[in-house]
Nucleic acid binder design. Structure first.
Lengths: 218, 218
DNA sequence: CCATGACAAATGTGATCACAAATGCAGATG
DNA sequence: CATCTGCATTTGTGATCACATTTGTCATGG
């Protein structure tokens, strides 16, 4: 049938595959997709108004980062992590995040701490409102805001792939334990930052990271 | 015009894009490509006897892992790392590799240590033969053989992406300093393993990792 | 000798198609 | 009622093409 092609604005926007990638990446990282959720090339393409080719590139990229899982037949789904894998990813977070925080410590001036406090307030509201996606989003933003000051782009990049892998699982975990009160760790982190106490900061991050994920054990 | 397609063996081999990916990944990791080396879709396709589509998927995957760099216009090259970036990647290695080694320690029985010793001999021969690619290959195999025992696939996966990012740079570094004698760190690692000394093992790995990459400073 | 501009070649992007394999489901069978 | 078989549908894979943009080259002008 070969219909005449629809002409796109032709402005030099971001490539289609990149738009698809970013959209899906956010869905995964913020836990807006359930573990085991299947994604098809044609389905993604239709959702984003593109053909299979950009959709394929986006999925390939995301699976390379561990955000998605590839079955033997080439099917793509969000990962269903085993308890061992969740534990391991938590340990990786516990290894990297205190290091990033420590590096950010000396560069963390007051404006940064204030901004983190604001994000933490939004986080507390999300908890009270029982909004898992917003909770995950603000929680990650809280951490990322701090780590950006570490000036360690490679390490932060690696850490974000870990967050990505945990995205769908976080969603089910945080909806499962229906927490109604904010965990105290973020306050400890802020206090350590204000005090300039490296050891306390590292400890606060380690407990924040491991505590949040170790509550799933069933 | 739609010419009749050439029929491929149709055996259920690995997909073409995966073969291309594996081939290129090895080239990058073992330092067989110079930093800044440009890779084109049609060129890769011709080399591996496939069309642009699988070549594109392989390149997308490798750039997602940091093995390749994407220019603003979409061109793909091997990364040319700044000194800061090299330093940061070395610090990441120094953070992860002692951890992996420590986890492998209690599972490291004699057969493993013997195998590592054999790999280390091959490594020494590669140094004497002035063969940078074989040196890098055996060096990484030495480390990976140990870390596989850590039973931490996620952490090992992350570490391999770090190795990937360093691949092309390692090549130029190791050819630059034309070492003729093996560094002593691998022997220290083996001794610590035999002694079951965790602290010594961690220290040996940290120095092996940082020492090898800190010699570039010019 | 270096900068500049025009033109040709090279290159990434996205759409479409053919095809084989996998999947899902209905109906038959035990 | 559970299991298997057969078929229609879905799905990933790879090739090919058109197109816009970028890159490289070479001649011209300062």
């Amino acid at each position: 049938m070969a219909v005449a092609l629809i002409r796109m604005p032709s402005q030099s926007e971001a490539p289609a595959h990149d738009r698809v990638y970013r959209g899906l990446r956010q869905l995964v990282m913020h836990g807006e997709l359930m573990p085991g959720q299947a994604l098809t090339l044609r389905g993604i393409g239709k959702q984003y108004g593109v053909s299979m080719t950009p959709a394929r590139e986006a999925l390939r990229r995301l699976t390379a980062e561990g955000a998605l899982t590839l079955s033997a037949s080439g099917r793509v789904t969000t990962p269903e992590l085993s308890n061992d894998r969740i534990e391991e990813l938590a340990q990786i977070r516990a290894l990297m995040e205190p290091e990033l925080a420590s590096r950010a410590l000396r560069r963390a001036h007051l404006a940064l701490i204030d901004r983190m406090e604001a994000i933490n307030d939004a986080n507390a509201r999300a908890i009270h409102r029982q909004d898992p996606v917003e909770y995950i989003r603000t929680n990650l933003e809280f951490h990322r805001t701090l780590y950006l000051r570490a000036q360690s782009p490679a390490m932060l990049g690696l850490l974000e792939t870990v967050w990505l892998q945990l995205g769908p699982t976080m969603r089910t975990l945080y909806t499962r334990l229906r927490r109604t009160t904010a965990p105290p760790h973020h306050r400890l982190i802020l206090e350590a930052l204000r005090a300039g106490d490296d050891a306390a900061l590292r400890l606060a991050l380690r407990t924040d990271v491991t505590q949040g994920l170790r509550h799933l054990q069933g």
